[in-house]
């Protein structure tokens, strides 16, 4: 679950793991999220570190806090994550792809053809 080279701070890895759980539907809207103590057990880390991961999601309003009850997935948490990932991660990968294409001297129409081909190979219709 955790990266073995552990160069990425653990609390960020925990936040990302929770985000994936929400994206994949393992945790749905208004469902209770693991407590910092449960996360500490699962990831074998200090509860304070696990708590930082939860705080990250709280700040992004992907989860909300109910006093005395814990953290719950926000009703629009899933959408928020989808939008954020599309924005940042996909955008990032597109930038990388364009830079790589430039390095390999592949022009835009050629690149589009390659994408179409890969898309069809995965069973997609254009």
């Amino acid at each position: 679950m955790l990266e073995t080279d552990h160069s990425k701070p653990i609390y960020i890895q925990i936040a990302e793991w929770l985000e994936n759980e929400i994206l994949e539907g393992s945790l749905s809207a208004d469902e209770k999220v693991y407590s910092q103590y449960q996360l500490a057990e699962i990831f074998n880390v200090n509860p304070a570190t696990a708590g930082k991961g939860l705080t990250l999601l709280l700040e992004k309003e992907i989860v909300y806090k109910k006093r005395g009850l814990g953290m719950f997935v926000s009703s629009n948490g899933h959408e928020k994550l989808l939008a954020e990932r599309t924005e940042s991660i996909l955008q990032n990968q597109i930038t990388n792809l364009l830079e790589e294409a430039k390095r390999l001297q592949i022009d835009y129409p050629q690149l589009l053809k390659l994408i179409e081909k890969a898309y069809k190979q995965q069973g997609g219709n254009i």
Partner: peptide, 8 residues
């Protein structure tokens, strides 16, 4: 590296 995950 052995204890870092444990520490606050």
């Amino acid at each position: 590296e052995e204890i870092e995950h444990l520490l606050e």
